[in-house]
C-alpha cells in the first residue's frame, strides 16, 4: 500500500482550475519526482499535501490516515519551500533548531542534531550567520537542513537545488538520496532538471495542466512515453508526423506500428537516428542544416521539409569531421523497436 496517496485532488483559484483531478501515489521510502512546465500546478499539489492549500475536492492520505482536514502543524510532512522561507530574525543554527524547539526537545539533543544537520549540508561554519548574509545556495541548504533535522516521514522538496552550482548540486543529490534511504523518508520532489529526476527518483510523474499525464520509472518514461507531451518533456525527442501503411511506418518500414492505417506520430530519440549516405531507400531524405561537434557526440539538425528539423545525435570518432552543411543525407532509425508510435501529436491537448 502506498505511503502517500493524493486522490482526485481538484483546486481552483478563482476561475483558474489549477489542479484538475490529480492523483499521485508514492510507496514508502521511495522518491517521486514531479516534472512539468512552469504553472502546471506542481507547487500547488505539494502545498495541498502540506496542508497550506485546502483542496476543493479529493482526499489526502498519508500512512493510511486521511489527513485532508488536518491543519499543517499537525501533519508530519517536511517541506522545503521554493523560496526558502528562512526566518530572517534567527541565525542559521536557530533556523534549523526551530522545529526541535517547537517540539520541546532538550537543549543538548537539539544542539547535537542541529550540528549534524548543518554538517550534512556543509554549513557548519555558518551556524551563527543570519539568512540575509547568505548566498541563495546557502539559504537553500539551510532550508533543507531545517526540514531534515526533524527526520520527517514525508519530505516535500520544491526545486530544492535550483540555486546550487553543478558540483554542489550533485553532492547534495547524493547526500539527500543516502539520507532518504537511511531514514526511510518518503519524498516528493519538484524539479525542472530531468537529469536530477533521473538521478534522484524511483518514479517520475509528468504533470500537465493540473493532471498527471504519466507515472513510471524514469527510464520507462524515457523509453515508452505515452504521449508526445511526455516524450518532449523527458529527454529530447523528435515527434514526427508519419503515415501508417500495413502496420509499418511509411518513410521507414523497419518500424512496426500496431495500429490501423492512417496518419500517426512517431517519437524517436535523437540518439536513435543515424545518418546514412543519400540515395534511394527507406528513411527521411533531407540536407544537413546544422552540425555541432560536442566532444563525444555530434549534434545534427537535418532539414527534411517538415516544420521542425530532425535532431540526430551521432557518436563522434576522434579527428572525424562532421557531415558538411548542405550535403544531402538520408536518416534512419537505428533501433526500430525503440521508436514509439502515437495516435496524437504534440499540438492536440
Amino acid at each position: 500500500m502506498s505511503h502517500i496517496a493524493l486522490q482526485d485532488i481538484a483546486k481552483s483559484f478563482g476561475p483558474v482550475r489549477v489542479l484538475d483531478g490529480c492523483s499521485v501515489a508514492v510507496d514508502k521510502g521511495t522518491v517521486m519526482t514531479l516534472l512539468g512546465p512552469s504553472g502546471c500546478g506542481k507547487t500547488t499539489l505539494l502545498r495541498t499535501l502540506a496542508g497550506f492549500v485546502e483542496p476543493d475536492s479529493g482526499r489526502v492520505v498519508v500512512g493510511g490516515r486521511d489527513i485532508t482536514d488536518l491543519p499543517p502543524n499537525r501533519r508530519q510532512v517536511g517541506y522545503v519551500f521554493q523560496s526558502y522561507a528562512l526566518f530572517p530574525h534567527l541565525d542559521v543554527a536557530a533556523n534549523v533548531a526551530y522545529g526541535l524547539r517547537v517540539r520541546r526537545v532538550s537543549q543538548a539533543e537539539t544542539q547535537a542534531r542541529v550540528r549534524k544537520a548543518l554538517d550534512l549540508v556543509s554549513l557548519s561554519a555558518y551556524a551563527d550567520r543570519y539568512p540575509a548574509r547568505l548566498s541563495g545556495g546557502q539559504q537553500q541548504r539551510v532550508a533543507i537542513a531545517r526540514a531534515l533535522v526533524l527526520e520527517p516521514e514525508v519530505l516535500l522538496l520544491d526545486e530544492p537545488f535550483n540555486a546550487l552550482d553543478a558540483k554542489l548540486r550533485l553532492s547534495m543529490q547524493i547526500e539527500l538520496r543516502k539520507l532518504i534511504e537511511r531514514v526511510g523518508i518518503t519524498s516528493i520532489f519538484v524539479t525542472h532538471d530531468q537529469q536530477e529526476a533521473m538521478t534522484l527518483s524511483d518514479r517520475v510523474a509528468v504533470m500537465r495542466a493540473g493532471r498527471i499525464e504519466q507515472v513510471g520509472a524514469p527510464i520507462d518514461i524515457y523509453d515508452r512515453p505515452r504521449t508526445a507531451y511526455v516524450a518532449a518533456f523527458i529527454g529530447r525527442a523528435n515527434v514526427l508526423p508519419v503515415d501508417i501503411r500495413g502496420g509499418r511506418v511509411a518513410p521507414d518500414p523497419a518500424i512496426a506500428a500496431a495500429r490501423a492505417d492512417g496518419a500517426a506520430w512517431l517519437v524517436v530519440r535523437p540518439e536513435n537516428l543515424a545518418i546514412e549516405n543519400a540515395g534511394e531507400g527507406p528513411g527521411w531524405h533531407g540536407t544537413v542544416a546544422f552540425a555541432t561537434p560536442q566532444g563525444a557526440t555530434i549534434e545534427y539538425e537535418i532539414a527534411v521539409g517538415m516544420a521542425e528539423p530532425l535532431r540526430v545525435v551521432a557518436l563522434r570518432k576522434v579527428g572525424e569531421p562532421p557531415a558538411a552543411v548542405g550535403s544531402p543525407v538520408r536518416v534512419r532509425a537505428v533501433d526500430p523497436a525503440a521508436c514509439v508510435v502515437l495516435g496524437e501529436g504534440p499540438d492536440s491537448v
Partner: peptide, 19 residues
C-alpha cells in the same frame, strides 16, 4: 510563507505569532 514554514515545523498559530 514564514508563517507556513513555522506551521510546517510544528508550531501552532499562537506559537508562530510569538516566535
Amino acid at each position: 510563507r514564514l508563517d507556513e514554514a513555522s506551521a510546517n515545523l510544528g508550531a501552532g498559530k499562537l506559537e508562530t505569532f510569538v516566535r
